[in-house]
Design a protein around this nucleic acid. Structure first.
Lengths: 355, 355
DNA sequence: CTGAAAGCGCTTACAG
DNA sequence: CTGAAAGCGCTTACAG
């Protein structure tokens, strides 16, 4: 590996000059700049990142801690983060499978000196498990249920989205609406449940709540739907707390020979990219997932840029109702058919209702 | 930020001793070890990664360069890489949108001194664009169409998979089988096309090839299928060079009021996780995508561990035919119904034919 | 078992 | 405009 010394020697200058050339310092004679630049290029020199970080105490890298890397949701989050970070000249150091406080803290330690800040998604965090990180170290929390001092927090309008979706199902005339709940102790899951209950209560149907357990993956949605179908009184609509479980529920209903939405209406939450390709296409609460990543990154970059003056905020991204076939909403004929070819037709516009 | 000096001072020892404690050196008295360890913990000390990398010339980080971060395919690749890397104590520095030689080389330079090796996925690489990287620097190429000296290469059995799928369609009696091609100049796309042509040729139908352009995304599959439907002689089967395009084709067929597989059979390539949830479930060539990432990581770790003796290899991961409903294969009744609840039932076992 | 010292590859005041 | 020198936070022979 060739170092700054090799370049300096070959060019007959000091390492300071080579450094200045590489950092575009104005204090270099044009001729020197060109000569050193050429020699560096010829030698294939590139500055050693770790050495640079050590002296500048900047890494141009953001750490990303996620519970998991599996599936479309996390994939979209990362994409949003990556695009934004890359656009600002930052790299991404990613790490997954963080499901408790010590894992988060351990990851932080192992990233110390390698990142300028951290995005941590960990919806199971609660008051007692706020990670203990050095004060002033820039951290953005995603989907955190609280707003601890010293952190930026970005969440999704879970309550509002769930509330609106269940209200919509009520509007369609459903009286027996079941929810497949998300992971126990998960903040997103809790808020979506609260929205479901709130909507039922607003219709005077609070005691009609039908709640079954789920854990956000397809298999649990399948199991939950199967269980619901075994009950003597079946629900006429199923609201799954995320799309993955809705997909599992659709499978269960199909296998049971039930038609969606005719026999049972189904709705999800997230609007992952595949939701529109299911058959029937899935009605769901739209979350701009990559925007979540983008926002988190922008907040983090702001915090990194001025550590001192940065004011921590808690932001909530809005959600939107996206009505496709699975919930049985009457989709206007003009939207139901998409006669033109091309990308636009690929995504037959769903009925969108702003919440 | 607290450094090794602070710990040494607080513990009344030299920095060398603190360092030894943290690295589990055997040359430390038990009492010292405990005392220093406690003080370090109390102070919240964690070693500075960049400083450590600089002196040890190891980063415990692998760089991952991908063309894109969008969609299930890349998501699965990363997951495979991450799991394996994490299991071996390595971090991941990811970077996307690499579509030409200079982007790859620039990324390499910016990662210099931050990673111990690189996984580069770039299927458009060819003989003239092999990136110029320092000799002996560990690099694994994914989906590369050639095996340049000094690189490990991992590819997928594209030719065999496509060949087998098209043979299967021929076996079902199809005579007019169209292919929706992948990105021009993409190695995977080229091999899949070769497999398609080879299968037709083997049936004496080479001149019956029906080839339309595509670029691996849903929209292009939609367009291609729409174009095929406009022809005076329609194909009876469509083989899309990846699942995303098959999904687009399914949308186009549905909008045109055609039934799959009754009117037109459809098959894809990749077996992304959602393939089984489509309706009809998609017949496709199964690639163990996360295993691709896993293998790449293992090869890279081997190269990192003994740079000198490491022998570069080219490996090809096998593919499997996965027959679901969309191609019209007669699925045995025992497989078509999945009566049991639970995760197993979620994935009704497709007819798998080993190629 | 412990410490003093050199050095990893850079950047940046400070002189000149 | 350029260079000598200090120093970022560590690790590791080398002495003792």
């Amino acid at each position: 590996m060739i170092t700054i010394k090799d370049v300096a020697r070959a060019a007959g200058v000091s390492v300071a000059t080579v450094s200045r050339v590489h950092n575009g310092s104005a204090l270099v004679k044009e001729a020197t700049r060109r000569r050193v630049g050429e020699i560096a290029a010829r030698l294939g020199y590139s500055p050693h990142g770790a050495a640079r970080s050590l002296i500048t105490s900047r890494t141009n890298t953001l750490g990303v801690l996620l519970p998991d890397l599996y599936g479309e949701f996390f994939s979209e989050v990362i994409r949003g983060i990556d695009q934004t970070a890359q656009g600002h000249g930052y790299h991404l150091l990613v790490s997954s499978s963080h499901d408790d406080r010590s894992a988060v803290e351990a990851s932080f330690r192992s990233m110390r000196g390698r990142v300028d800040g951290l995005i941590v998604m960990w919806p199971e965090m609660d008051q007692t498990t706020v990670p203990n990180l050095p004060a002033r170290f820039p951290v953005v929390l995603l989907s955190a249920p609280l707003k601890p001092d010293g952190f930026d927090v970005i969440t999704v309008a879970n309550f509002e989205g769930a509330y609106a979706m269940v209200c919509h199902l009520l509007d369609l005339g459903h009286q027996r609406i079941a929810i497949i709940k998300g992971v126990e102790g998960n903040a997103d899951a809790a808020e979506r449940l609260r929205g479901y209950r709130g909507a039922l209560a607003s219709a005077g149907l609070f005691s009609a709540a039908i709640e079954v357990a789920g854990n956000f993956n397809e298999a649990s949605g399948f199991r939950a739907a199967t269980e619901l179908l075994r009950r003597e009184v079946r629900p006429t609509a199923i609201f799954a707390a995320n799309d993955a479980m809705a997909i599992g529920a659709l499978s269960a209903l199909r296998e049971a020979g039930l038609r969606v939405p005719d026999d049972v209406a189904v709705a999800g939450f997230d609007d992952i990219p595949m939701a529109r390709y299911l058959d029937p296409a899935l009605s769901t609460v739209h979350v701009d997932i990559s925007a979540l990543g983008e926002h988190a990154t922008l907040r983090l970059l702001a915090a990194v840029r001025d550590k001192e003056k940065h004011e921590h905020r808690a932001e909530t991204l809005p959600t939107t109702l996206v009505l496709r076939r699975s919930c049985g909403a009457a989709v206007p004929a003009s939207l139901a058919t998409a006669p033109t070819a091309g990308p636009a037709a690929l995504h037959p516009p769903p009925l969108v209702r702003h919440i």
